[in-house]
Design a protein around this nucleic acid. Structure first.
Lengths: 238, 238
DNA sequence: GCCGAGGCAGCCCTATAGGATTTACACATG
DNA sequence: CATGTGTAAATCCTATAGGGCTGCCTCGGC
């Protein structure tokens, strides 16, 4: 059931008549379309992603869809079974969550330290903006009401990864980032912890402002550990 | 120039007559074929990987090749320019090397600690075997003579990543592993440091044998730092 | 001898067709 | 009523065709 993809009037001008205005290939468009659908929650975990089906929904041929799904598989967002097709990765178990947090604890504090060492004024301003967006974002119960909140949260961590100036650390975080976002959506706990989370992000930002890499590393580690504690405390079932 | 792919009598039986014996799809076969070609050095950095060309060489249609390359792109082994095609990622610069080592120092010692905590007897035996293979592998000047050496080296680190029991840490290392292997091949320094490297691997193994996670972590960190030092010392040009 | 235009081959990209396989459902039988 | 079987639809997988673009080579003109 992923018919919600806006297939009816997104790209139709041109393309039929030979040349699309977009300089990017169709597979890229399909990729981002599928990615946002995954992040939005329109594609629930465990549901199948039919190649022909999405091709029809997006009004393209199966070939670009196949290429986009091949890339998505490598991110862990979808799983493929040979001759059976693709399906969205299953829901997070408690073990998965524990492993994810362990990995975040290994990577993100290091990112914070490196980023703090090399951060420039522009980067700091972007980080500050992300925290401001986090504070001002609406936090209602419906998805549309906390979408911006999640987006700002993700952007904050992603900015730090980018500011490391290390392409491999950034890639390592990106591989996790999608899973983190997926957990934020389907982890069970909503955003009941906004107050604490905002305070922790502010603390990380303050640590960056001091320019002390050690403080930044410690603040990030504390943040992640507290996220873990809260999620475990609010665990819906065993 | 990747005609060295053994296209002439690798898969030809069956397939033309409907059903291949291999239960895996053609794209998987193309993927592993390209991967080994990249690791072997048959595909030099910077060279183009034509979709139609490899399709002809492997005697398949371009569609599976396209799917395999899409996956490969996400590993950083090949780069894609829209409407221009794929080419093998360029050679390592000194900056790339520094970043790679920084990332390894962030990830692999943690892997060693986690693996040491959870390692069982079977895992330890596999690790021991890898070190033995490293010692007994031939170390001649030609590629075929130190292929096994590189393979054992890579296997050692990969085993530790797997023994963490953490799918995300394993994925994070895998993303790096390919680049590490690529560097071993094209980094400029051959395997002139085999004596020291073997001793360090043995030290890591000994640390694992004691069962002390802290020692394992320290031994791994020391190993990577020394690899970095040796590579910098033997840097061919600025 | 030098330079620019035209043609040609190769490539990427997407669409479409067809074979093979799995799955679901209806139906008959013990 | 339960179970096995056969058919049909859906799906995946691969191959082939054609459009559009880029780069190179050749050839004619200056």
């Amino acid at each position: 059931m992923q018919n919600a993809l806006d297939s009816t009037d997104a790209v139709p001008p041109a393309r039929r008549s030979g040349r699309a205005v977009s300089r990017q290939v169709l597979a890229d468009h399909v990729y981002t379309e599928l990615l946002t659908s995954l992040m939005d929650g329109r594609l629930a975990p465990g549901s199948v992603v039919s190649i022909d089906g999405t091709a029809r929904d997006l009004d393209v041929s199966p070939t670009p869809v196949r290429e986009a799904l091949a890339r998505l598989e490598h991110t862990g967002m979808v799983r493929r079974v040979a001759l059976k097709g693709y399906r969205v990765a299953p829901v997070f178990t408690q073990e998965d969550f524990a492993e994810l947090m362990e990995a975040r604890l290994a990577i993100e504090p290091v990112n914070a330290r490196l980023a703090c060492e090399r951060m420039d004024q522009g980067g700091l301003a972007e980080l500050k903006q992300a925290v401001e967006d986090l504070k001002s974002a609406p936090r209602g119960p419906a998805f549309a009401e906390f979408k911006e909140y999640l987006e700002a949260d993700e952007r904050f961590h992603q900015l730090i990864a980018r500011q490391t100036g290390n392409q491999f650390m950034e890639a390592a975080y990106s591989a996790l980032g999608g899973q983190i976002q997926r957990f934020r959506l389907f982890g069970g706990v909503g955003i009941t912890d906004a107050e604490s989370a905002i305070a922790e992000h502010q603390a990380v930002l303050d640590a960056f402002s001091t320019g002390d890499p050690g403080k930044a590393e410690a603040a990030m580690a504390a943040h992640i550990q507290q996220v873990r504690s809260r999620a475990i405390a609010a665990a819906p079932e065993s």
